[in-house]
Nucleic acid binder design. Structure first.
Length: 274
DNA sequence: CCCGGAACCTGAAGGC
DNA sequence: TGCCTTCAGGTTCCGG
């Protein structure tokens, strides 16, 4: 499940391979990847040069010289690979470049998307702040959470509130700052917003250093795997002892999503008794 | 604006 | 052994 650290890892691998190269062809073996009517827009990018490989939240952006862009979203099972198509069974598209590189969009569950957009400004605008940028302060986070009654776990997953966090890293983040996933977002104290902000940055940064988490269907463009999942303390560790206190890791459903947490380290705040 | 739920998609896992 | 149901989760859309 590619989240910010996985997409950033992919971005760093693709950047040196694709920047400066011209798109020679785009073969959509699954036209639904580009959405209704997308095939025409895809044809328009042929012949144009890639000027940058960017990431915004979980979106990967191939910026082109005419200010157009190819925006890729991997959703659940998408993978971008610089390999031979024969090595993969669920290839939905192959992009060929003037420098000989070939980029495969492999995607078992076919939820991923490839879109050609004239201007990425609209996309950038609708997403919440980038958690690793310096502008992402505790105050910014507090302002975006204030007044909301949704569980904090759900708020962390909402890309309009913060960009890039998915289920795994939301759980790891809340464990690190000892916040219960069901706490209403607006009830976090200022000190907790500071701890949450620090935890978000720490968890994501360390995951990038470990090249992302290969829990299920995530691969680096060279076919390798990341190791961030080996550092997980609660995510996907139901019943395992909490690394801090030994209590078995529990799991609750928050908005139809599994949330792993330590019931002792992350207690739901008891209502004050007079 | 705010929130909850359905839909999209396919393979794995569990029940009977 | 095999059929059936449920679950996994990122995002969008729709209804209250």
């Amino acid at each position: 499940m590619p989240e910010l650290p996985e997409v950033e890892t992919i971005r760093r691998a693709l950047e040196p391979a694709l920047v400066g190269a011209r798109i020679e062809s785009v073969a959509l073996s699954d036209p639904s990847l580009a959405g209704p009517g997308g095939a025409g827009a895809v044809a328009d990018v042929i012949g144009h040069r890639v000027t940058a490989v960017l990431r915004r939240g979980k979106h990967l952006i191939l910026l082109l010289e005419n200010s157009r862009a190819i925006v890729l979203h991997l959703r659940m099972t998408g993978a971008l690979l610089l390999q031979e198509p024969e090595q993969h069974s669920r290839v939905r598209a192959v992009l060929s470049f003037s420098n000989g590189q070939r980029l495969l969009f492999n995607d078992m569950r076919r939820l991923g998307t490839l879109r050609v957009v004239d201007d990425i400004a609209a996309l950038l605008k609708q997403l919440g702040p980038e958690p690793l940028e310096v502008e992402f302060t505790a105050q910014v986070l507090a302002d975006r959470l204030s007044g909301r009654r949704v569980p904090i776990k759900a708020a962390l997953l909402d890309q309009h509130i913060i960009a890039g966090i998915g289920n795994m890293y939301a759980d790891e983040t809340l464990f690190q700052c000892r916040v219960n996933p069901l706490v209403p977002s607006g009830e976090l104290l200022p000190a907790q917003c500071q701890q949450l902000r620090d935890a978000i940055r720490d968890v994501l940064q360390r995951a990038i250093e470990n090249h992302g988490a290969s829990i299920n269907t995530y691969w680096l463009p060279n076919g390798g795997t990341g190791s961030a999942h080996r550092t997980f303390q609660v995510a996907h560790r139901l019943g395992a002892p909490c690394p801090r206190c030994g209590t078995p890791v529990a799991r609750v459903m928050v908005r139809k999503r599994g949330a792993y947490f330590c019931p002792k380290c992350q207690p739901f705040p008891q209502p004050a008794v007079r």
